[in-house]
Design a protein around this nucleic acid. Structure first.
Ligand SMILES: [Zn+2]
Ligand SMILES: [Zn+2]
Ligand SMILES: [Zn+2]
Ligand SMILES: [Zn+2]
Lengths: 129, 129
DNA sequence: CTAGGCCTTGACACCGGCGTCAAGGCAAGG
DNA sequence: CCTTGCCTTGACGCCGGTGTCAAGGCCTAG
């Protein structure tokens, strides 16, 4: 399988696959041409990468998952390193959720206050256009 | 007030103040030196900018707030344009919150599944180190 | 006179995943 | 022979707010 076909099948671009290879995530053999030749198993790897990226993981975080897949596991999530990353990400998401919730609260308060001031008689505000 | 003093009083750096000026957010006069001279009112403006940036707004979003302050209002949030931006941001935060909540759910499920597989007898997995 | 401190403008770097263009090789069909 | 299409490597750009360095001007204290 050449790079274009793999890209199409994985729903991405050749540029992206070369980038993953440069990052050490995807492996490719070479034809006599110099063309990259991909094993069928790489499709699963690329799909896992894309899925994790879409979920907000970074390239470094994804390494253990790929290694876990390459070790022959059915899922990339079952290895200890992957679980560590999953836990870390979960904590990170929780922190971010709290932060966003606070922000939301703050925004609502400011909106309500602004609307209240706007509806009040126009003595305390300049009421620009 | 020179740029260094304003930076210190606003808890930021001269570089940052020059950037805000370049973006049209902060105004400064010039001494015969060529040194920027800041009105006392600019401190409030800079504080508003820093606060909004910390809340996740971008430079473009902040423009109406600064204009509202300059129009003489006590708060930068009361003008119609500011309220529009606040509403937009609130919606954006809500969307992001939903997205993050879904992701959290997904992460928990994957973690639970991985742990379950790991605790189950080691027949279905390769159980790498 | 000079050292030091604050000011000026301009430019490059960062992050991270990828788009995009350039310049060129290789294969197949007309 | 020429076109077409896929492949190769290499390089720059993006985003957005800021750090940081360079080269130089201004001012004050010793
Ligand atoms: Zn997965
Ligand atoms: Zn405010
Ligand atoms: Zn980068
Ligand atoms: Zn930029």
């Amino acid at each position: 399988m050449l790079i274009g076909e793999l890209a199409t099948r994985a729903g991405t671009s050749p540029r992206t696959l070369r980038y993953y290879e440069q990052q050490g995530l995807v492996r490719a053999g070479r034809d006599a041409n110099g063309y990259r030749q991909y094993d069928d198993a790489e499709l699963r790897v690329v799909r896992e990468i894309r899925s994790l990226l879409a979920a907000g993981f970074g390239i470094e975080d994804i390494r253990p998952f790929v290694a876990c897949l390459r070790a022959g596991n059915q899922s990339g999530h079952v290895c200890p390193d992957s679980v560590l990353v999953l836990r870390r990400k979960l904590a990170e998401v929780d922190g971010f959720l709290g932060q966003l919730t606070d922000l939301r609260q703050q925004l609502r308060a400011q909106l309500d206050e602004a609307v209240a001031l706007r509806e009040s008689p126009c003595r305390t505000q300049i009421c620009p256009p």
